[in-house]
């Protein structure tokens, strides 16, 4: 009915549009894409790795100090390094990185970015304390109570810093992202899974047999559990994926993600050695990164019809 016919132009032969012109506005994407590219996929990964490692270590240490105290003391400094790298990425992704601290002039719970920044900032303090006190303990200065206090204080902001990320990337008007009701559920769940995996590697490196035994079981259960929010997330994204990718492409990526989850599952089930644990965890992290990049790419990808019309 509303054929924006180009027949008018046909008789006068206007110069061709320079860059794939579009007639009318019916089928254009209305929203604008924020410049959130690969950095954000890495940020989502590092966010989960840092907060997940801290939470997994803290929860395990508080529940069974005798088993986990050794590995936890290594985990906190590692988590701090991961967090710092993540923070650098976040700052670099700003349009004006020198104004990073402007985030701290207000606290706005309506803005997931604001809540997240505050959680990250507050969390960095007890995490730094826990990491520093863990290192000091290795060097012979043991402030056990203060260290435990730092760990406990870090729990809530650490959890918040992991939980906001998915909400930030689903509370917006972007195609696909706006339908991702389970992104947050998946990301937070996956953070704990990755944290558990990292803790498992550290235990393996430190030959903590009891910790390895417990974490292997936890890892297997968490990995299977994580399939639920992942499946729900992909169900949310089915419509948009169908618009962006051919069936073949969807199957290939889906298979890749499934294999990326099954390999670590098989490896950990079969063998508790350092090598198989390390390989399993590398696969898991790669898989987690893949899911995040597939997600981050959505608004940057133009729909199939538009592409075939080019």
């Amino acid at each position: 009915m509303h054929a924006n016919s180009s027949s008018q132009h046909a008789s006068t032969k206007p110069p061709l549009p320079e860059q794939g012109g579009q007639i009318g506005y019916e089928n254009t994407t209305v929203t604008k894409v924020p410049g959130w590219h690969g950095i954000i996929a890495w940020d989502a990964l590092l966010n989960g790795m840092a907060m997940g490692l801290f939470l997994a270590a803290a929860v395990s240490e508080l529940a069974a100090p005798a088993v986990f105290i050794g590995v936890a003391k290594v985990a906190y400094p590692v988590a701090l390094v991961l967090l710092l790298v993540d923070l650098v990425l976040l700052v670099l992704d700003l349009g004006d990185p020198l104004r990073f601290h402007h985030m701290l002039r207000v606290f706005k719970p309506s803005s997931p970015m604001s809540l997240g920044t505050w959680c990250l900032t507050i969390f960095s303090l007890p995490l730094t304390a826990a990491a520093a006190l863990s290192v000091l303990a290795k060097l012979g200065w043991d402030f056990e109570r203060a260290r435990l206090l730092a760990v406990v204080v870090g729990l809530l902001p650490g959890f918040g810093a992991a939980a906001y990320k998915g909400v930030l990337l689903s509370t917006n008007a972007q195609p696909g992202w706006k339908d991702a009701r389970w992104l947050g559920g998946y990301l937070t769940n996956s953070a704990l899974l990755m944290g558990c995996a990292e803790l498992l590697v550290l235990s393996a490196v430190m030959r903590q047999t009891q910790a390895i035994a417990i974490l292997r079981t936890a890892f297997i259960v968490l990995l299977i559990l994580n399939m639920i929010p992942l499946g729900l997330l992909f169900a949310n994204l089915r419509t948009i994926h169908a618009q962006l990718y051919t069936r073949g492409q969807q199957w290939r990526v889906g298979a890749l993600i499934a294999v990326g989850a099954l390999i670590p599952l098989g490896l950990i089930l079969l063998n508790g050695g350092l090598l198989s644990i390390s390989v399993a965890v590398i696969f898991l992290l790669a898989d987690s990164w893949l899911v995040r990049s597939v997600y981050v790419k959505i608004p940057h990808t133009s729909p199939l019809e538009v592409r075939s019309g080019e």
Partner: peptide, 25 residues
């Protein structure tokens, strides 16, 4: 979205806790 996000994390923590309590010596 926040509820699902928090739930996803809490369930994982609960699982970890249960496993630790069941298997710790």
């Amino acid at each position: 979205d926040y509820v699902r996000s928090v739930a996803g994390g809490l369930v994982a923590i609960a699982v970890l806790l249960v496993v630790v309590f069941l298997l710790k010596p």
